[in-house]
């Protein structure tokens, strides 16, 4: 399933990229995500909990980040095994931070998600809604993180 999302934010591209390209910071901002251990330069171990309607799906697995600092783009691959017979989840996301003329930036995230098991069965039709809500929460947290940074940077 393809999920295409994007948002604009009133902050310089370099600052936004600095957060989005740091897996630990990213996981703190993404609702339900957790990074537990670094395996190598590009790969981390972690978990993800998603609530879809009456279901809570918890996955553990790996996530890898291939970063292109020049283009401020990333390819993120996540592979999760669900707990309690929940099935599996795989995601490949291409994200990019592009500077806008007004000094802000635009973030685009195109994902290809494959889910098996109960979440795929019951989540159909809700997945888009859930991913949009997660993104809204993410943008909210990102905005406040950037504001906090800006406040800390003030003398």
């Amino acid at each position: 399933m393809r999920i295409e999302e994007g948002f604009t934010i009133d902050a310089p591209a370099a600052e936004v990229w600095a957060i989005l390209s740091d897996p630990r910071q990213l996981s703190e901002l993404l609702p339900g995500a957790e990074i537990t251990e670094r395996i190598d330069d590009t790969t981390w171990e972690g978990g993800m909990t998603v609530k879809v309607g009456p279901l809570v799906a918890a996955y553990t697995g790996t996530v890898s980040f291939m970063l292109n600092e020049e283009e401020r783009s990333a390819v993120v691959r996540a592979l999760g095994q669900g707990k309690a017979g929940m099935g599996t989840a795989e995601m490949t996301m291409n994200s990019r931070v592009a500077a806008l003329p007004d000094g802000g930036c635009e973030v685009t995230m195109d994902s290809d998600v494959t889910v098996t098991g109960i979440l795929a069965q019951l989540g159909r039709g809700m997945t888009q809604v859930v991913s949009r809500r997660m993104l809204q929460e993410f943008v909210k947290r990102l905005t406040s993180a950037l504001e906090n940074e800006a406040k800390e940077a003030e003398p």
């Binding site: 494959t114 889910v115 098996t116 795929a120 069965q121 159909r124």
Partner: peptide
Amino acid sequence: YDEDGNNLAGSFMD
């Protein structure tokens, strides 16, 4: 079924 073999009407919701 989707292409991964998930049953897409596995409850009375669907």
